[in-house]
């Protein structure tokens, strides 16, 4: 059962991820990206990390992608307005994506199936309780620091959004 679900979800993820890149209309790209996120949440559920799955859905599919869709709708981008990007940027994008692929392959090459024993994991290792305990004990300092980082990013965004800084 798990295997069948895994293959279906993987098919959806890969298919929709390809659609993000291949579709001409940016709206379809965004919608495919939402489907990709939803299927990744499904994968997380299969790994019994419910909290991560739902948070991924809320944050990425529910909030960030709404803002993407917002911008694309406001700018009214579609096939006719899309300009043909020049050769240099295409080459640069291909090169950057290729480098990312190489580094990912290099990282995951050393892992093997069954390398980590699943015996050590308790049944609720992906639950909010366990995650909270780990975040607020082992990783307290990085967690707090990253929250300060988020706060400063938020304030920065608000400052950039103001039209005239001198008036305020």
């Amino acid at each position: 059962m798990d295997n069948i679900l895994f293959y279906i979800l993987s098919g959806i993820s890969i298919g929709s991820a390809l659609l993000v890149v291949l579709s001409k209309n940016p709206i379809y790209s965004v919608l495919s990206l939402i489907i990709t996120f939803a299927s990744i949440s499904g994968h997380l559920l299969l790994l019994s990390a419910e909290f991560l799955a739902i948070v991924n859905l809320i944050v990425y599919a529910g909030a960030i992608m709404v803002l993407f869709l917002f911008v694309i709708m406001m700018l009214n981008l579609n096939e006719t307005t899309e300009k043909n990007s020049n050769l240099i940027s295409k080459l640069a994008a291909t090169g950057a994506a290729g480098l990312l692929l190489i580094s990912l392959v290099y990282i995951f090459k050393s892992y093997q199936v069954g390398q980590f024993s699943t015996q050590q994991l308790t049944e609720d290792f992906g639950s909010a309780h366990q995650l909270g305990k780990i975040l607020f004990n082992e990783f307290l300092l990085p967690f707090e620091i990253s929250s300060v980082l988020f706060l400063s990013a938020m304030i920065g965004a608000v400052m950039l959004g103001k039209k005239d800084l001198k008036q305020h």
């Binding site: 709206i27 919608l31 939402i34 419910e50 909290f51 739902i54 948070v55 859905l57 809320i58 599919a61 529910g62 909030a63 709404v66 869709l69 917002f70 709708m73 609720d124 639950s127 909010a128």
Partner: peptide, 23 residues
Amino acid sequence: NIGILYVFAIVSIGVYGVMIGGW
């Protein structure tokens, strides 16, 4: 065991119905 968050996630997906239809 994350019932409330599930409700919240579905509500946040519901925005797309209105947005896509309107656009």
